[in-house]
Structure formats: C-alpha cells, structure tokens
C-alpha cells in the first residue's frame, strides 16, 4: 500500500467523523471543530488519490491550497457569528424550529 492510498483512507475516515460531529453535536464551537476536521479529511482524499506512480499531480494540490485558505476564512466568520449570538442571546447552540 502506498502512502497516498493510506492517507486517502484516513481522509475518508476523517470526513465521516466530521460529518457525524456536525450532525450530532449541539455546542457551536465544537461544531466548528468538527467542520474543520471534515474539510481536512476531504483535502487528504483529494491529494492522496492524486499520486500516480509516485508522481504528484499539481492541479488537486493547487485546489487544496485554495481550500485551506477558504476553510480558515469560513472558520473566522463562524467564530465571529458565534460570539455575536452569545452576546445577544447568551446561548451557544442554535434554537430548534418548532413550527416546521
């Protein structure tokens, strides 16, 4: 087994773990952590599967590079929204929709 395939498998497991965390956890900061784990898993799958015969493919690498920067920007926005929500309502989880 090459290291690319191994890390792609790890990435798939991380993605599943992250999805489970985003769906099941109520606390917003922990949900942001789970979202980041999910993104890291997707990046590992992309780069790990892009290695053919030991030669890395540059196109997925460039995409993942962009994705990492977008992920940190999204994390900063989510943290700012969480702080605002906590300042206005004093709670750290999203309210359930009763009439839906």
């Amino acid at each position: 087994m090459t290291s690319g395939l191994l890390f792609a498998l790890v990435g798939a497991a991380l993605f599943a773990l992250g999805v489970a965390g985003v769906v099941l956890i109520d606390h917003l900061l922990r949900r942001i952590l789970a979202f980041n784990l999910m993104g890291s898993g997707a990046f590992l799958v992309l780069v790990g599967l892009a290695q053919r015969n030991g030669v890395p493919d540059p196109v997925p690498q460039a995409m993942v590079l962009t994705g990492i920067v977008v992920a940190v920007a999204a994390t900063a926005l989510a943290l700012a929204l969480t702080r605002k929500l906590h300042a206005l309502t004093g709670r750290l989880d999203l309210p359930e929709d009763a009439d839906d």
Binding site: F43, Q61, L65, I68
Partner: peptide, 21 residues
C-alpha cells in the same frame, strides 16, 4: 496534518497548513 502533507510530497500545502492550521 502538516507532517502528513510532508509525507505526501506536497510541501507547498504543508507550508499553508503549518501557517494556518
């Protein structure tokens, strides 16, 4: 993750991950 990028022969992603992650 930065170490994993180094193992996957992607030092540019490792650079971004070390700075950001």
């Amino acid at each position: 993750m930065a170490l994993a990028w180094a193992r996957l022969a992607a030092p540019d992603i490792g650079l971004a991950e070390a700075a950001i992650g």
